[in-house]
Amino acid sequence: MEAFLSNIDRVVDGFSWTVRLTLLSALFSFVLGVLLTAMRVSPVPLLRGLSTAYVEGIRNTPLTLVLLFCGLGLNSALGLSMADSVAWDVFWWAVIGLSAYTACFVSESLRAGINTIPLGQVEAARSLGLTFTQNLRLIVIPQALRTVVGPLGSVLIALTKNTTVASVAGLGVQEASREMKLMFDQGIAPVLPTFVGFAIGFLILVLPMGYFFGWLAKRVAVVR
């Protein structure tokens, strides 16, 4: 255990990258997820089709493949670059892959939320003269979001843990689990205590999320 604790600064550094990956991917996947949902319920068949194809396509692809496609396909093979330094380049590609993947789950949660809204809410908004986008922005999405705070919390928890795939799937991004593997490879940390230590690290990160979203879901719930 002492060997693990003497390397605590490396552990903390690893988790700091996990947090960065999570926060940025959460932000982008949320924005993209809302957009996909808006397209999915729009009256324009082309937008609906594109959104459905995207969600069904990416959601049913393993995350490893999505991240490999970003790293080996777009970044290495096609030479698309997001930053000058290699470390930041792979970091941003990991954020793109995680966001693209997680957005599908955000969108599906939100769509489930929309389905819980009584039709009368939409008709009342229409009868006031709100346009389709106003209706979505002011009535439908706010109510849908409030009903799916809990499920979105689960999506965020999954995202946090999914960041560990980014280091093994071709990208070699710095994050907690990669730091752990490096510590094993360099033979500076005994295996079992280190495993337990990193697992506890993830618990410390994720457990409060679950409680926070549970609390938030109750607080913002729409009472009908």
Binding site: A124, A125, S127, L128, G129, L130, V222, V223, R224
Partner: peptide, 30 residues
Amino acid sequence: RSDVGMVFQSFNLFAHKTVLQNVTLGPMKV
């Protein structure tokens, strides 16, 4: 539609908005 008021059987007040916000939403946004 903004010229035609509608009152529904099931009221259909916006559940996530206060009474006053329900009444001011149309005037402000439309």
